[in-house]
Nucleic acid binder design. Structure first.
Lengths: 200, 200, 200, 200
DNA sequence: CATGAATGAGTTTTCATTCAT
DNA sequence: AATGAATGAAAACTCATTCAT
């Protein structure tokens, strides 16, 4: 019976959440240089406890990244039934960029690159993106030669572009999302010399 | 006649070049975490020699970045007189992305963000880009609302997009440069909600 | 009853003591140039452990200095109730010089000059010295124009004088303490041109 | 014929003086941590040149110390014929402390302990001090049991005492020279338990 | 004689991770 | 399950000294 009460689990779960939140905050403030010790302190636990929950600093990063990807998957799923497929795709990209911007964590992506759990979450997200893209393409809202993988790969570009600026206005990414989205539309699309990637 | 003066300088200059090359290689392989010790070893010198040439790891990074920016400035200057302004701008973006791709060093940009020498080189480059952009705009090849700073900030986007892929084909960036450039063209351009940044 | 709690603490406390002892020994042998690595080796721990106990080399030095000052404060407090105030002050200066001599650490004083914890301990000590001085002055045993701060500042002088000798006899400092103490006594005291310092 | 002109020597001598001056200034500003490189830069020469003149950093320090000792020897010699032996001794101690204070170099003493050239200069100085002391003792101006070596060893004490203060007034040392000198006078002198050192 | 580049050992400090309690 | 002390490898940077030119 897994329904039997196990109070310690509640504590552990709370610690896990506290750690994820603390880690996000520390990484946002101090970049990849955030230390496990600082994260533990911020979460109100001791260093050893971090490693009980996440075998490795990399695992902790992966858990954060997976959380963000899952949020995006949820968002994409919600948008699947939308009546305007173009608006739905645009909304998804807006939400994705906004999330990346608010949790200034693009660098964590790199740090969790090969992690298999991240890859699985990513593939799930790409599935949802595929459905958004297919609907938009069917509605003539985006060019024919653009794929789900393309959109997934381009998802963070507005934030990356913005990060090249020394002192950007906080919503500057919207400008570049606009330009990018125009590039995705069928009007004025010129043929692409490179084929779409088969794997993300 | 000046070639006969100060032979030791030749050695020092050779070391400097070797260090820059070794540093680029190490940074490309191991990211920003590449250590000065490894760079020294690769260049065949001792750690202390690195610091004789570059007072700080950051200075070394800045020297690399400045080198790349200077190369791009040269390229842009060469393209200023081109007869086809659209092709010239596209060629510049192609060269820029190709350079970034061959020396997988986008992250060094971030690491040298505040460096004043880098800023100066950057501003010079933006000046040249501005001339390319003005010419292209005058020729009706790009949308009216796009500025030199926009182009500068977007320059690395194709590489960043490509880097999100686990196993990209080596010329995948060309695909995204194509999409991006389509976004820069006047056909099908939709109004941008965010104003252009006034400073890079 | 509290002695049975937290055995690991005992280990840590032992390490802390070992580190302080090792640091004193190394500093005595090699001066301020003694390295943290050597101190760790001597204490039988690893370098990292030093920094777990003392965040900084300076903190370690401060801990040593504070320990010595505290010992002197204890000594001074004990002497407060003595029946012969002159003997009490002389005894205090003797103990102080002897301590300084046995742990040849006058230079650590300089190295921990600005440390606030050291300053607090110092001020406490000066308070006790003040009481010894007042009692001695009231008994006519020392000149009227000498203050607690004077005595505190002069405390190490016998050791400094002795250290100027290449090969002193181990109790040579007593000779100079004698001369100094004669200078503090009312007999033959000539007026001082400089006022007493208001702060140590 | 050593009288033949050797212009290069003039340069070398000038460099030597510049180095000594620069070294004194650097040591005064940055303590024993002053680096040979900084000294060279300040003297307007290159690091290698420092080592041509002084085989070792220690040798450079020794040269400075010897210079100061020689100045004191000159001063002592001048005072030998003074009519008031007490005033002469007091003047010598005043000049000595003032010199130590103006060139805040007590720490160099320690760093050049053991150097044979320094020892020789020191012994010469002690000889002159001996004559001053003998004259003062003959005049009844100082206690019978005090020797030249005592005076030599005590010479820097006023400065050391003053250096224990965090923020001393610049002439505070005069206060402690006064107290110390009172200790050297015959009035109120109590017997010393330790014999005078036979060697400095 | 001077130059200044190279050396290499050394410094303090940081940090992810392990492990006894 | 949590604690927090210990580990040990690594990092950036400094400096007195040597030596080819």
């Amino acid at each position: 019976m897994t329904t039997s009460v196990r109070p310690p689990r509640a504590d552990a779960a709370r610690n896990r959440e506290a750690l994820l939140a603390a880690a996000e905050a520390e990484f946002a403030e101090r970049g990849i240089a955030a230390s496990v010790a600082d994260i533990a302190r911020r979460a109100g636990v001791v260093k050893g406890t971090v490693f009980r929950h996440f075998a490795t600093k990399e695992d902790l990063i992966a858990a954060i990244v997976i959380g963000h990807i899952a949020t995006l998957s949820d968002e994409a799923r919600k948008l699947l039934g939308a009546s305007d497929p173009e608006a739905a795709l645009r909304e998804f990209l807006t939400v994705a960029a906004d999330q990346r911007h608010q949790h200034n964590l693009t660098f964590l992506q790199t740090a969790s690159a090969g992690n298999t759990a991240v890859l699985a979450a990513r593939d799930e997200l790409i599935g949802y993106i595929g459905q958004l893209v297919d609907a938009a393409r069917a509605a003539g809202a985006i060019r024919a030669d653009v794929t789900a993988i393309d959109v997934f790969l381009m998802m963070c570009a507005p934030i990356h572009i913005m990060e090249n600026s020394s002192d950007p206005s906080p919503s500057l990414w919207q400008r570049y999302l606009g330009i990018l989205f125009d590039g995705l539309r069928p009007e004025g699309a010129s043929p692409l010399t490179q084929p779409a990637p088969s794997k993300p």
